[in-house]
Design a protein around this nucleic acid. Sequence first.
DNA 1: ACAAACTGAAACCATATTGATTACAGATAA
DNA 2: TTATCTGTAATCAATATGGTTTCAGTTTGT
Lengths: 141, 141
Amino acid sequence: MTSEFAVAVHGLVYLNQRKTTISSEELASNVCTNPARVRKVMAKLKKAGLIDTKEGLEGGYHFVQDPSKVNLKLVCNALEVTFVSSSWKSGDQNMPCMVASGMSGVMDEIYDELNEICRSRMEQITIQDIQDKLIRNRLIQ
Amino acid sequence: MTSEFAVAVHGLVYLNQRKTTISSEELASNVCTNPARVRKVMAKLKKAGLIDTKEGLEGGYHFVQDPSKVNLKLVCNALEVTFVSSSWKSGDQNMPCMVASGMSGVMDEIYDELNEICRSRMEQITIQDIQDKLIRNRLIQ
DNA sequence: ACAAACTGAAACCATATTGATTACAGATAA
DNA sequence: TTATCTGTAATCAATATGGTTTCAGTTTGT
């Protein structure tokens, strides 16, 4: 899958920790990617209302919502994340054989269902949960 | 994800329907791919004991097990399918920031869990189920 | 014994996907 | 009004994925 999801979650967690307005450049350096990609991802989170943005001098991104209310399914929705999919299709709709003509449809249904299951799981994890986990992990070491 | 899984499931369903020994060439034409790829995938299913193979003249692949006992998790195991993953990692383990150093680990755990959830679901679907579904779908049209 | 027809496996090529880079218009604050 | 940001698009590079070709090894029929 595309790693936009990871960029978004990382960005949200970082914004939540810093509490201030952060530029795409600073975010990119923390995420270890380039500012343009950060802006592309964060723009979608903005459209979904998950963050505030400010253009111009001293602008950037700002996390305003309650981190325990922002779950990862909301992030998936904002980015239209697809966890499980395959562009390649087996068989061919026009073949007379029941298997050859029907398998790709069956596989698509399977992928769709797996996707929905993944999204449901993501609904149970919040930005706060991840923040807590990071803190716990640091203490362990 | 890679579409080896689709090739394998399609292959098993086709073998189950035909009941006879089928060459990689015939399988490939039904799956709509090339014989080499079919052989690569089917060899793994053979190693997992899901099918029998026969080399030499009149050789090929043969489905012997009870189709209602062969579930898709067994196929996943045979092929070492990974449904959800991302090769790209955000942040960097060596950075002092808790978020930057810890996020990739957290995301990996999330992907691993999603994978396990997908595999569990796959355990509930058998080759027989798919065969039945194909028959039903054909009747509907 | 030998030829034909198959699998198993690897090397290599073509294409698609993914992330990086660059550039620039528009917004905003000092 | 200038400097510094975001938003967006175009292009480039690296990686992943599937296709093709090839050949050694196996098995069967004659």
